[in-house]
Design a protein around this nucleic acid. Structure first.
Lengths: 155, 155
DNA sequence: GTATATTAGTTTCATTCGTAACTAATTGCA
DNA sequence: TGCAATTAGTTACGAATGAAACTAATATAC
């Protein structure tokens, strides 16, 4: 180990990656949610479900869970709220009548396309001062981090 | 705008920074917490409070909240649990008897130094395949993102 | 073909979390 | 002084969350 290696008995939170990511991520998510929650009566998990269904319709609840890294209970709850509100439609697969087939309703699709610019606008603001090179670097570094996760299996 | 600019009516979650950060951060935090929660009967907010007090003793609850980006209620709860468990000590400032003065107890300090290597070890694993350059890049990019936050005031 | 195991999704329950209301101490100012 | 405004921290309460138990449908074993 080199001499500029950190000592392993001193923790500086301000330098500790997991901590920094957590603070940053929570602040960003909260800010974005502030942009649509009240206006559309839409919680963050509900928006996530809508976002994947907008991108790829006719997923099952389990597939939504996979794609969003939400757990199945969270998906189930978001799905029932969205059904109630008429923002998604559900039917069940003929070949396996347990498996749901979810898609945005017409109304849901309309909201989806209203929320997207809010979300992308926020992201654009984050990247405002980033060069293309920096964006690419960040992309690569985040991918690398995701791959480094101790428990990173394909689940 | 260049022609490789993203359309603003299409959202790909896999490319959406706030989403990627959230998934990554939650996975990392959960993994680390798995390393100490059960072993030390320590929740994440409790560990955060211990971590700042280990780094800088004699902070007030409010200062802990500032440093950790936790809200004051979360700090208050963590503090009472830690007091109960005898892991921190509290007295009150003479010049302002509302203001608490918090520090790790002897026992708390011992636990603190046992948890640190777990946390740093996890971080090291994340960075295992990172060059020094990449680490510096990540550091700079995260700082830049923190500065870009829409609501980024000095609170 | 029936019994068992597995899978999809829901419900339940206990805990966590955040906002708002509250208490207590201090400061400002008339 | 004395009374309103501010600040530090706690409590209370409703909403969000996660683990485990549950229901229903399908697949597998015998």
């Amino acid at each position: 180990m080199s001499e500029n290696e950190k000592a392993n008995d001193t923790l500086l939170l301000a330098d500790f990656l997991p901590y920094r990511l957590s603070v940053l991520s929570n602040r960003i998510s909260r800010s974005i949610a502030d942009g649509y929650e009240e206006r559309f009566q839409l919680t963050l998990p509900e928006w996530r479900v809508m976002a994947v269904l907008g991108e790829e319709p006719d997923l099952s609840a389990g597939q939504v869970a996979d794609r969003t890294a939400m757990d199945k209970v969270a998906v189930s709850r978001a799905v029932s709220k969205l059904l109630e509100a008429g923002r998604i439609e559900r039917h069940f697969a003929n070949e396996d009548r347990r498996r749901s087939v979810l898609a945005l309703s017409e109304d849901g699709n309309k909201i989806y396309h209203e929320v997207i610019p809010i979300a992308l606008g926020y992201e654009a603001k984050l990247f405002e001062k980033f060069s293309e090179t920096e964006k690419r670097q960040l992309d690569e570094l985040l991918l690398k981090l995701s791959a480094s996760q101790v428990g990173a299996t394909d689940d």
